[in-house]
Write a protein that binds this DNA or RNA. Structure first.
Length: 946
RNA sequence: GUGAAGAUAGCUCAAUGGGUAGAGCAACUGUCUGAUAAACAGUGUGUUUCGGGUUCAAGUCCCGUUCUUCUCGCCA
């Protein structure tokens, strides 16, 4: 039976069907390292136009999560696709290494800096810890197939980097943006440090909400203000009532603010004793209800303005505080009278300055009332709340107390409530040298993708407060300033001194600042100045990577502005902004030409992935089970502009799609087993028409893909490549050419023609998905016939041969029409099959009755039409009188066609499986058709079209 | 609570300046056994989150709603 099977050219390949990615990928990574792929790419691409995607540094702490993987894979896809598009695209990875999260981890191990260990020992431990974290994350990123300069990353803790951070600060000072202030800032008692806006998160907290009497001291003054009301209704005791959720700030109270434009009521309550309370008129009802007093009588009303400068008694200290006016007072909650502690609130501070109120801050850095604070010294503020309540009760100042659940700022690292605390801090001013305005201009000069990113960052920069860059911590770059002990002015030679300090830091790291020989630096002035011991906000570190890396590092040394920054959408508030601000402050222009953002990963319910929800996914674990290419394909397939949904079902679909792409590649390779392009490649104008179509169609798709790559629309690439594999290739072209490749003489032109097309297709295809399925592409690359470079990444998009106008007029449009007819024929064949009359299509014969146009169209294929339909016989007729059993179909061109299908009555050729009349006609080959005999014994058949 | 973005078949994505909602995958059914832990063929599927409005006509424009994500926030 297998007599003729050996005369066929069946597909053959060692390319494995089963991907086995988990095992193969690590081997490939080793090969990339061994061949020094990254270095060779830099060398080989020298002189090409440069494209720089500047890597935003992940924080060097903890294992990478899916979000990290998404970010790095997207960057990798872009860098690789740019490389294949003919750019020199260096990719220097970085890590953010200073900062509190690392300090906290190290504290757990060695104890607090300056207590159990010296600060320099502590810094050494931090450096060691960060190094380890970088190593861990780096191997995780490598495992994802990301190609980058892994051996030479930039670390913000490199001595050179640390020195350059200080230099960057110097540049910003030189440009006049530094500002020293003492306003209240977010303060974390656990950190013992100020926090930036970005380090604050709002969470629900239960606080005491209390109403407190501030008795009016000067009744005569009050009466003067209230001339229009009958004074006899006034009680002896009149109090302004404030409402607060932070009782612990009362010791620092310096006034009570009312809104000048609001109306206030003096109400008389009769209870245990008679008293009068002053409340905003609109809040009287809510307040008295809260106080549970029923018997009330409104004595009179007045504007808030009328109360200005009335003297009040502090509820428990022997202190007179004034009534002051402020527009920030609203009717949203409380009493309309606001307790004002300038040291503990931003509005309080601002309004306090107008009235020259004392900025009292009795709270130490650890959140404990300092020694000498009457009644509360030594108590932690949140614990002191109860004590304050007790004291208020004792002093009969407490009107009401309850619990309130409200949104309250928390430290993003400790997750503990933070406080406002007025301390001397360093700021980058947004306005003293027009930083805000200049940054706003630069935002307009920058491309934001998606577009709404611009509106987002504009609103942020427009409204943000000045940037508090000082931290009272240990592990970070120093604010290397000398401040005059008397004048509090920074040293006049600051810029010069900073450079000298930077040079020392470059040699010894940040410890150089603390071991500094101040005398040597300042000479006789040394005693007049103190050295600032605050460190810089870590956001400053990462914010100046544009200065430290771009324009300095090899590969990007002549390149001051990055083409692209690519981060999660949260970085509008983070790195995009810190980079923008520092860059504008230093140079006047932005550090990047375009900012591209991706969304966050969410689970199948659309909820974000987080540790606490337990719905997170470990990318490394995924790589080691399903393979990094599956993960990469998911990243590419997902429209990252919105949320990126990850679920088991999605992953399953992705794995299915992967198998389809892989298998298509495998089949293409299998048909090239005996093909050597040097010897067998058929010139494009000598190819069979259908093969030329296949090349043209592939070329057309490549153009679409190149555009999608340059627009960073990877999900389109996924869709198009997949559809190409399943549609154009699987269900049409590859199915049709089987007959030619399998049954025609090995070296026949028509067979080599098909192989030539397959060769062009796989050459193109392997490049298309190399940026995404890097491991698989590399694997295919090795199986491709012909001379090969070491890696697919040394090549650019495939250069197709110029396709001449088809001599038979069979262009893309032509074949699209044929395919449409093929589809309707297939439907009829399916009906025949369902009826049990045929099995395979080759068992069928087809008769088509059509109008002149379609007839001419199909007739151009002559007898080869049957190969396009994969049927044994196809006959064409001018419509006339179609038989009754013929199915009538209207094509999209409005042309009509009648289709009659039937099972063939002929014998099946053992070799080509067609059912032909001439099977058995030749006595020497009783089971073969004439075509097969010609193909094995004769010169072989001729094919022109399909 | 603010601002922004999104919500279209089970999944991933489409749908030019408003004109009968489309692909692929999955599912199901069948075929083949010369891509075989494959391949081919055929078959459905949607109150386009929901509710209004404008219009001859709305996934598309307007108003509102719900949910999600990012973001902001002195409830003192």
């Amino acid at each position: 039976m297998a007599e003729y099977k050996h005369t066929l050219n069946l597909p053959k390949t060692k390319f494995p069907m089963k991907a086995n990615l988990a095992q193969r990928e690590p081997e490939q990574i080793k090969k990339w390292e061994a061949m020094k792929l990254y270095d060779k790419l830099r060398e080989g691409n020298k002189g090409k136009p440069v494209f720089v995607l500047h890597d935003g540094p992940p924080y060097a702490n903890g294992d990478i999560h899916l979000g990290h993987a998404v970010n790095k894979i997207l960057k990798d896809i872009i860098v690789k696709s740019k490389t294949m598009a003919g750019f020199d695209a260096p990719y220097i990875p970085g890590w953010d290494c200073h900062g509190l999260p690392i300090e906290l981890q190290v504290e757990k191990k060695v104890g607090k800096a300056g207590k159990k260990v010296s600060t320099s020992e502590f810094r050494a431990a931090c450096r060691k810890y960060a190094t380890k974290q970088v190593d861990g994350q780096r191997s995780n990123f490598k495992r994802l197939g990301v190609i980058s300069d892994w051996d030479h990353p930039y670390l913000t803790m490199d001595f050179k980097f640390e020195a350059d951070i200080v230099r960057a600060l110097g540049k910003i000072i030189e440009n006049g943006h530094l500002h020293k202030g003492a306003k209240p800032v977010h303060w974390c008692a656990d950190c013992g440090s100020s926090l930036a806006e970005a380090e604050v998160e709002y969470e629900d907290k239960s606080s005491p909400a209390i109403d407190v009497r501030f008795a009016i001291l000067d009744m005569e003054a009050l009466k003067t203000r209230l001339e229009h009301i009958d004074h006899k209704h006034l009680c002896d005791d009149v109090s302004v009532v404030i409402w607060t959720t932070t009782p612990w700030t009362l010791p620092a109270n310096q006034g009570v603010a009312v809104n000048p434009g609001l109306e206030y009521s003096i109400i008389k309550c009769s209870g245990a004793g008679e008293e009068c309370l002053i409340l905003a008129s609109d809040l009287v009802e809510a307040c008295t209800k809260r106080y549970e007093v029923n018997d009330i009588h409104v004595v009179g009303t007045c504007s808030g303005e009328a109360l200005e400068n009335l003297k009040l008694k502090h509820p428990f200290y022997d202190r007179e505080v004034p009534v002051i006016l402020g527009d920030h007072v609203t009717l949203e909650a409380g009493t309309g009278c606001v307790h004002t502690a300038p040291g503990h609130g931003q509005d309080d501070f601002i309004v306090g300055q107008k009235y020259h109120l004392k900025v009292d801050n009795p709270v130490g850095p650890n959140g404990v009332f300092v020694e000498g604070t009457p009644l509360f010294a030594g108590k932690h503020v949140f614990k002191a709340n109860d004590d304050v309540l007790e004291v208020l009760r004792t002093n009969n100042a407490l009107v009401h107390a309850e619990k309130l659940l409200h949104s309250y700022p928390h430290c993003w690292r400790h997750n503990t409530p933070i406080i406002f605390r007025a301390t001397p801090q360093w700021f980058i001013s947004m306005d003293q040298k027009n930083l805000r305005a200049d940054a706003m201009k630069q935002i307009k000069e920058t491309t934001w993708l998606p577009e709404w990113g611009q509106a987002r960052i504009e609103s942020m920069v427009e409204g943000r407060p000045e940037w508090c860059i000082s931290r009272q911590r240990t592990w970070g770059a120093p604010i290397a300033l000398f401040v005059h002990k008397q004048t509090e002015e920074i040293h006049p030679r600051t810029i010069e001194l900073i450079e000298q300090v930077a040079q020392q830091i470059e040699q010894k790291g940040i410890d150089a600042w603390y071991e500094l020989d101040v005398k040597a630096l300042l000479g006789d002035e040394a005693d007049d100045y103190y050295q600032v011991k605050d460190i810089l906000d870590v956001w400053f570190d990462s914010g100046v990577t544009h200065y430290v890396v771009m324009n300095q590092r090899e590969g990007v040394e002549d390149y001051p502005v990055a083409d692209l920054y690519l981060e999660g959408s949260d970085q509008h508030r983070g790195w995009f902004q810190s980079s923008l601000l520092t860059s504008v402050a230093m140079t006047g222009t932005n550090a990047y030409k375009a900012a591209l953002t991706h969304g966050f990963t969410v689970d199948e319910k659309g909820h974000k992935m987080s540790k606490s929800r337990g719905n997170g996914v470990e990318p490394t674990k995924l790589s080691n089970t399903l393979g990094a290419d599956i993960l990469r394909l998911w990243v590419a397939a997902t429209d990252y502009r919105g949320e990126m949904t990850f679920s088991n079902e999605i992953l399953k679909r992705i794995a299915d799609a992967y198998r389809r792409i892989r298998n298509t590649s495998r089949y293409l390779l299998a048909n090239l087993d005996d093909f050597d392009p040097e010897i067998h490649k058929v010139a494009i104008d000598k190819m069979v028409s259908l093969d030329r179509w296949a090349v043209a169609r592939t070329h057309q798709l490549q153009q679409e893909l190149e555009e999608a790559y340059s627009n960073y629309e990877f999900h389109k690439i996924y869709q198009k490549v997949h559809n190409f594999c399943a549609g154009d290739m699987g269900s049409f072209y590859l199915d049709v050419i089987k007959d030619r490749i399998y049954t025609m003489p090995t070296d026949s032109q028509a067979r080599r023609s098909a192989q030539t097309a397959v060769f062009h297709i796989v050459e193109a295809m392997v490049r298309w998905f190399a940026p995404v399925l890097s491991f698989t592409a590399e694997e295919i690359w090795k199986f491709l016939p012909g001379e090969r470079t070491e890696s697919v990444f040394f090549s650019e998009w495939y250069a197709f041969p110029d396709i001449p106008k088809d001599e038979y007029g069979m262009d893309l449009d032509y074949w699209n029409q044929v395919i449409e007819v093929r589809d309707v024929v297939n439907k009829e064949l399916e009906a025949l099959r369902t009826a049990g009359e045929i099995g395979a299509n080759l068992q069928a014969e087809v008769e088509l009755y059509c109008g002149r146009e379609i007839f001419d169209l199909l007739n151009r294929l002559e007898d080869e039409l049957r190969f396009v339909f994969i049927t044994s016989t196809t006959k064409l007729y001018i419509a006339g009188e179609p038989p009754k059993e013929a199915q009538h179909v209207t094509l999209s061109s409005n042309d009509e066609i009648w289709i009659a299908v039937s099972a063939s009555e002929h014998q099946k050729c053992e070799r080509c499986w067609h059912y032909r009349e001439d099977v058995g006609a030749n006595a020497q080959h009783e089971t073969l058709c004439g075509r097969c005999i010609e193909n094995i014994d004769g010169d072989g058949e001729t094919r022109l079209y399909a």
